[in-house]
Design a protein around this nucleic acid. Sequence first.
DNA 1: TTATATTGTGCAATCCATTGCATAGAGTAT
DNA 2: ATACTCTATGCAATGGATTGCACAATATAA
Lengths: 344, 344
Amino acid sequence: MKKKTTIYDIATKLNITAATVSRALNDSELISKKTKKMVLEAADELSYFKNRHALALKSGRTNQVGLVVPFINRHFFSNIIMGVEEELYPKGYQVMIFQSNESERKEKDIIEALLQNQVDGVLISVSKTTRIKDHFNKIIDNNLPLIFFDRKADIENSSCVETDDVLGGKIATQHLIDQGCSQIAYVTVDLNLNIYTNRFKGYKESLKYNGIDFRKELVFQANSDIASGRKVARQILSSDANIDAIFCSSDYIALGVMQELKEQNVSIPDDVAVVGFSNEPFTELLDLTLTSIEQSPYEMGKSAARVFLDQMNSKNAIIEHAIKLKPRLYIRDSSLKNNRKTHN
Amino acid sequence: MKKKTTIYDIATKLNITAATVSRALNDSELISKKTKKMVLEAADELSYFKNRHALALKSGRTNQVGLVVPFINRHFFSNIIMGVEEELYPKGYQVMIFQSNESERKEKDIIEALLQNQVDGVLISVSKTTRIKDHFNKIIDNNLPLIFFDRKADIENSSCVETDDVLGGKIATQHLIDQGCSQIAYVTVDLNLNIYTNRFKGYKESLKYNGIDFRKELVFQANSDIASGRKVARQILSSDANIDAIFCSSDYIALGVMQELKEQNVSIPDDVAVVGFSNEPFTELLDLTLTSIEQSPYEMGKSAARVFLDQMNSKNAIIEHAIKLKPRLYIRDSSLKNNRKTHN
DNA sequence: TTATATTGTGCAATCCATTGCATAGAGTAT
DNA sequence: ATACTCTATGCAATGGATTGCACAATATAA
């Protein structure tokens, strides 16, 4: 195996010292132009490149940040990553991306690895299964910026960027009510996650605001996938609740629900209106397009990155940002009753 | 800013040397149980963790591999990433993910950064715009495993894992012919990329095999997006070619094509059958589901990772793997003429 | 009790780049 | 010609973990 070229190799070749080489490579004004040129040429010839680990060791800084998401192959998260990179790459930061697979154990391992890597900060969306939070405190203990996005944990001195999910829940519900619905079933996912509790909260607040009684028998639970959506649709239809809308806290659930409703000849949106959450790309590709709440993941990523940069630029002051991004409703076929007047 | 804990801090605290601490932390059998316990406790108390950069500097190995994709937020690539991680994470490797944004310039920067990071290997899918290949040779010059996936460059001593795109082109075309089509338009993307030239090759071979003349006026070009698909559909319809099928080398083009056909009241699949390529998730969520070629990105990622591991395990021998994964046709509504007999 | 084997630690060099301080040599002023 | 600046370089320590070699302390054998 060929040894890697170091500044010492260059120095030896040119009969100068490594210090001079180092300075030349960094374009120090202490070094004569002639020497700089010599060094640069030799470096190129020996195909030299800096060893970042030596640098990191010396300086204590790495210009790397850790970015942790549950899964990378989700539209939402991969677009957050895009946003983070877009913001951080031009500033000279490398983004190290990791996925927790929704496992607390893996999340801990990852953070351990990030700390070992001496990253300059951590951006993370917490795994669904995470209950313990020691690993987050370790980050804070090491005086590193910790920024949560989308899913946060309650950690002192950390920051967070999230969608205003309460508002999201509200505007979706309000929209259904505006469409004439009043018996609105709600399908939630894991209520351990703040995002889902908040959407639920928005749903309830909106009902209250409109003078509609909250009925807990209209609340159902499902996983965020199509099969689970179909299953919950069957539950809803076979229950004695006489609903006229289903608000799903996930687009995948909503899709499953729509498939099942179609199969059972329930007309969408006239018999039952459907609204999803997240505005997945497929929502507008469907034949019966799905009304949904857009969360702007790309913007969220950018925002989280900016918070990180902010904290880096004011290392002394402890800043706790708490940013809420406004969600937006995309109204589509699944809930828009243009024939509403003809129905009762 | 609090200083990070090192083995020296632990050593000082316990009145022993750093060497002993190091051995204790690595569970060396040279160290007494009593000392190990002491050290472990102290390490915990001071919230110590290893500095990977010191390690990397010392050992020359990082247990990190670089993974470069054009865009992370594409179903295809994000699933490749999943596969790579799945295979490498259990073996103790960290996967550093980067996106080239289809820019040769950024690709070069990334590889430079990876080399500076002393990664143990590079897995990459080449950017569309890349023409120069010096940066790939640098990797080889440094004796690192270089594995291309999906899109490769012609580099000695590198390996590659790809879909058998020629076969993909063949089976899709054969399927259309089996459905009774003979005037099959072909829509290609950038012919600079091997994947597209190969799909095109498969198309032509299949025509020939079936005794159908290749007509170059049936070949169209588009970008891989919906708008471009709509545009090319308009071109096709307004040309005097009298086609009965459109084989699109991308699902997004196919979707745009279908939307345009519907709008122009062309019946799918009876007037015109449509086939896409890649089996994007949305293909089966559509009301009129889209026939497409599945490329198993997850498997591709795993395969590429395995090639990497192989090369690591036989550092002396130069291995050049060239793996072709079999694509698979998913036949759906857009091309399946179940009423074929009733039509002529 | 002395010689010898065993065990547990310490010493010091190494990996690579950076940087404060020292200094040789060239240039300028008197 | 002497004293005094600069300029361009070299020297050596630093950062954190590892590891071959040396050696002290203890245990065992003779």
